[in-house]
Design a protein around this nucleic acid. Structure first.
Length: 710
DNA sequence: TTCTCTAAAATTTTT
DNA sequence: TTTTAGAGAA
């Protein structure tokens, strides 16, 4: 077996990790030490030796991108081994993020988790809306109790597996209001048949705890579990993994404490530190050989991270003989000059050093830094891609249109109801909406049931028409334009009800089809709200929501008034409709839009990607590598960020973030900072980042800006 | 009461 | 620069 092709070229430690078979394994993998290779080859090895079937292996990652990449690499390795033929008909191992794994699980067992199968996932934006409303309704002091603090409180508790009632027992006196908000929030989400991101983990763990037979079933399927970026797991994620791995204890975790950068999301380094205690006799393998960066870059990174007190001691080594290029530190007079330098240097790198756009990344601490850089790149005609930032499915227009589908599918979803009825002026404002919700609530039914049973006859805009007749009387789906002969609010419900009946008939047809061919699995699945893609029904439905709601005419009116933003929005919605062609199932589509924003790698479909420079935050750069890396904005108060300065541990996290950024670079590294930076309408004056001083002088060449560009 | 326009405020990191 | 809040118009 050791002669297998896929094992070639591994160093001793890597080989040891790949060949590890049963029992717990902790891999401490430094930056660029080939840990992805190790994880994927270990999966390949388990399959090749017949120790496990593909479906016995579960890989858990933090990002969708990482999950995709690993699956891709496993596929390649298996194919390579077979001389180009994929013979593993049983498919590839499951690699998914914590969140998508839990979501799939909960969809399958929604009833046991106490939800209806059509539950929706609330993203941050949806959650914030609910929280803001609760704070208003409780008449709390909005100066002290802010939505973001409340959100943090709720998240912190959910991540620690503490529910609302329990939080009353653990809060300090001055946090009592937050526990009240948490309690109201949980109630509201439950009433809306909705889960937020944290609920996905929370409910999955509870599902396993309350239903040992289910846990047993999944434990027997996933005999081998691997967790990537283990240093970024929080309490509840760790708990989930422990539950699943408890039976077979074939758990392999990979992590690097120096790259722990998500403590603000509840990640705790304790999970790595206590791993050996949880699993006595576990094997520990250190990967310290770096295959990515030059010696100078590694030395800079090591010197920097040694400034942290709390860390496991390890040192990255390289076989490379020469030091490589020296690190450039650029001092700019203002942020425009900084961008100017970066753009100019990129052009030089391409012209003189033979690099191309795809080799280059510009990293920054905060998303807000990207704008000035973008402006400059556009002026210089340098093509670029932004990773992260406002994701496609988070855009207002996309969320607006999808809220129609979400509400039609799950009429309990209060957030989507409010959003869809207000995104186009319908004549229903705050008061009318509240009124309708109260009526429905008092009668113990959802909004659409209340409408159909005539409970809304007192609502303005609905009173001159029998509610039931709205949706059978008028032109059939798909209609293109809003009907101006009825009130905006009647038209709105007409649209919703047509979408709903369209969704239901699609589910029905899929169900019949499944029954006909005797496939009970599909039949069962379709009850959860699936829509078959015959005739691109999903795209039709979205198109219908867009046009019949009046959203399209609203945007077009904006365009005729030369509103550029509305033009972009039209394009985005068209892209949404395009993207929906790839999905057969409406629930799956909506799930993906919430937790797997496939647009996070922009336009991955068109290959033009590779001709562009990459822009992203330091956080989203983790796991990537580029021949040339620029880190912009190395200033006190920006990086390290001002909000990290009041305690040592968050300052150390900033330092790790800087370490992550530096270790992305393979050959050339540029660190830039600016004495003056525009912030709002005035300027802020900053000192150079302390991190610049922590890099040994001999590794640095300093360039000082002589001009000031605007 | 709802809609629209203008002024003011706000900017860490993400599944 | 973009988003939100508030005031006045319809």
């Amino acid at each position: 077996m050791e002669n297998s092709k896929y094992l070639k070229g591994l160093n001793d430690e890597q080989l040891k990790a790949v060949l590890h078979e049963d029992g717990p394994l902790l891999i401490l993998a430094g930056a660029g030490s080939g840990k992805t290779r190790v994880i994927t080859l270990r999966a390949v090895h388990l399959i090749k030796t017949g120790r496990a079937k593909s479906y016995n292996i579960l890989g858990v990652t933090f990002t969708n991108k990482a999950a995709r990449e690993m699956k891709e690499r496993i596929k390649k390795a298996l194919e390579y081994e077979e001389g180009g033929h994929m013979e593993y008909g049983s498919g590839l191992p499951e690699f998914s993020t914590f969140h998508s794994f839990c979501l799939k699980l909960l969809r399958r067992h929604a009833d046991l988790a106490g939800y209806e199968r059509s539950f929706v996932v609330f993203d941050e934006d949806d959650s914030s809306k609910v929280i803001t409303k609760i704070i208003k309704s409780l008449n709390l002091n909005e100066k002290i109790i802010t939505p973001s603090k409340a959100k943090y409180f709720i998240e912190k508790n959910k991540n620690s597996f503490i529910n609302a009632e329990e939080s009353f027992g653990t809060v300090k006196a001055w946090e009592k209001d937050y526990a009240v908000i948490y309690s109201e929030y949980s109630k509201k989400l439950k009433e809306s048949n909705a889960m937020d991101f944290n609920d996905l983990l929370f409910n999955a763990v509870r599902l396993f705890q309350n239903n040992p037979q289910i846990l047993e079933r999944y434990s027997n399927i996933y005999k081998y579990i691997m967790v990537d970026e283990f240093q970024d797991t929080n309490y509840i994620q760790d708990k989930l993994i422990k539950l699943l791995a408890d039976k077979h204890k074939n758990i392999c975790v990979v992590g690097d404490d120096d790259q722990s950068i998500y403590s603000f999301r509840g990640a705790t380094i304790d999970n790595i530190l206590s791993f050996e205690k949880t699993y006595p006799g576990c094997s520990v393998i250190k990967l310290e050989r770096n295959y990515r960066s030059t010696k100078n870059i590694l030395n800079a990174a090591s010197a920097l991270v040694k400034g942290n007190k709390i860390r496991k001691d390890k040192t990255l080594k390289t076989d490379k003989k020469s030091g490589g290029s020296i690190i450039t530190v650029y001092q700019a007079n203002n942020d425009y000059s900084e961008s100017y330098y970066i753009a100019k240097e990129i052009r030089r790198l391409i012209r003189e050093d033979g690099y191309s756009n795809k080799d280059i990344a510009i990293l920054y601490r905060a998303n807000s830094q990207s704008r000035v850089i973008e402006d400059r790149l556009i002026k210089e005609s340098i093509r670029y891609n932004i990773y992260g930032g406002l994701k496609f499915y988070q855009r207002k227009e996309i969320k607006d249109i999808l809220s129609f589908l979400r509400f039609a599918l799950n009429p309990k979803d209060a957030v989507s109801f409010e959003r869809s009825i207000q995104c186009v002026p319908t004549g229903a404002g705050e008061k009318t909406i509240k009124n309708m919700q109260d009526i429905a609530f008092k009668n113990g039914v959802d909004i659409l049931t209340a409408l159909k049973t005539g409970l809304f006859s007192s609502i303005r805009g609905l009173n001159n028409m029998q509610a039931q007749t709205i949706y059978i009387a008028r032109a059939s789906f798909p209609a293109a334009v809003p009907d101006s002969s009825v009130s905006g609010i009647a038209n709105y419900f007409d649209v919703i009800l047509k979408i709903k009946s369209e969704i239901e008939s699609a589910i029905l047809s899929k169900h019949e089809e499944a029954v006909k061919i005797g496939n009970s699995d599909i039949a069962a699945e379709s009850e959860s709200g699936s829509v078959s893609n015959s005739g691109d029904r999903l795209a039709d439905i979205i198109n219908f929501a867009y046009k019949a709601s009046g959203y399209e005419s609203m945007l077009k009116a904006g365009v005729s008034k030369a509103n550029e933003l509305d033009g972009n929005r039209i394009e985005n919605i068209e892209e949404l409709i395009n993207a929906s062609h790839d999905f057969g199932d409406i629930t799956e589509f909506l799930d993906q839009s919430a937790i797997n924003d496939t647009k996070e790698e922009p336009n991955a479909r068109d290959g033009s990607d590779i001709t562009k420079v990459s822009l992203m935050t330091l956080h989203s750069s983790k796991g990537l590598e580029f021949p040339v890396v620029f880190i912009a904005g190395l200033e006190e108060h920006l990086f390290p960020h001002i909000r990290s300065l009041d305690n040592e541990s968050s300052l150390e996290e900033e330092r790790r973030l800087c370490y992550v950024g530096i270790t992305r670079a393979k050959e050339k590294l540029y660190l830039t900072w600016s004495k003056k930076r525009r912030s709002g309408k005035d300027y802020k004056y900053n000192m150079p980042s302390r991190f610049l001083r922590e890099i040994p002088e001999e590794l640095i060449e300093e360039i000082v800006d002589t001009y000031e560009y605007y």
